[in-house]
């Protein structure tokens, strides 16, 4: 690509969507099926998959004809790794010429959320996680614009309704939808919503919706031994036997 083409590609606004959810809830199946629906509607996509150790999900996207790039955090905190690589990820997606970039993040801890201000934010969870799950999942659900619930075909109507109610209690403004990543039921509608995601020219200077947890302790620096004498830096000690309040710091 010559310089002029490069500049043109990087200046072109592109729709951007962040997708977060616990492992094995069906994120990739839903996103891959939705990419196919978007293509039918004339919207091309590029997918970036952030994961921790390994993933074979890129094969699934490739089979669906969707350009995909995988980023593995390995020994680093996956949340911080995601934030540190976002500019580069977005630039890669711009170079694919896609109309819409979908960033799928797995392995984020429940304290974290990849969602950005001004960017459409999805959270995917499944109906098999128990009805307390919406409370436990934290900011990736509380700060999402759209909450998608998978595996609803396996549980009773009552469980689906109670689950939905609990999601609503945690996030009063999100659109909540049931979706089936295996049959694709609901993916057509999701594609219509994603086609409305705001287009952005750059992610530089954008802000996360939620600050990430602090790190930098001995264990960040590869300490493996257990014991207070080995712990330095940002260490917080728990008073066991006392009930702790949940933390919802914004």
């Amino acid at each position: 690509m010559n310089e002029a083409a490069h500049e043109e590609a990087t200046a072109r606004p592109m729709r951007l969507v962040t997708v977060a959810g616990p492992p094995a809830c069906g994120k990739t199946a839903v996103v891959a099926k939705t990419c196919a629906k978007l293509r039918e509607a004339g919207v091309s996509t590029a997918v970036i998959k952030f994961d921790c150790l390994q993933t074979r999900d890129d094969a699934l996207y490739q089979a669906a004809g969707v350009p995909v790039s995988v980023a593995l955090s390995g020994g680093l905190c996956p949340d911080h790794f995601f934030a540190s690589n976002l500019e580069e990820a977005f630039a890669w997606a711009q170079h694919t010429g896609a109309d819409c970039c979908i960033i799928e993040t797995a392995g984020l801890c429940n304290r974290c959320s990849p969602h950005l201000r001004g960017v459409m934010a999805l959270c995917i969870i499944d109906n098999l996680m128990g009805i307390d799950a919406p409370e436990k999942i934290g900011p990736m659900l509380r700060l999402a614009d759209l909450v998608l619930v998978t595996k609803g075909d396996l549980v009773s109507q009552a469980e689906r309704e109670v689950y939905r109610h609990r999601i609503r209690q945690m996030n009063s403004r999100a659109v909540i939808r049931h979706i089936n990543g295996l049959t694709g039921q609901g993916c057509q509608e999701l594609a219509q919503i994603l086609a409305l995601a705001p287009a952005v020219a750059t992610v530089t200077d954008m802000k996360l919706r939620f600050s990430m947890p602090a790190a930098v302790c001995s264990y960040c620096l590869s300490e493996t031994r257990i014991g207070a004498r080995y712990q330095k830096g940002n260490v917080r000690k728990v008073e066991f036997g006392h009930r702790q309040e949940g933390q919802h710091g914004e």
């Binding site: 128990g130 075909d153 396996l154 009773s156 109507q157």
Partner: peptide
């Protein structure tokens, strides 16, 4: 509201 043969209580 839907009821099918595949549905179970998981709680």
């Amino acid at each position: 509201a839907q009821l099918t043969q595949n549905m179970n209580f998981v709680l």
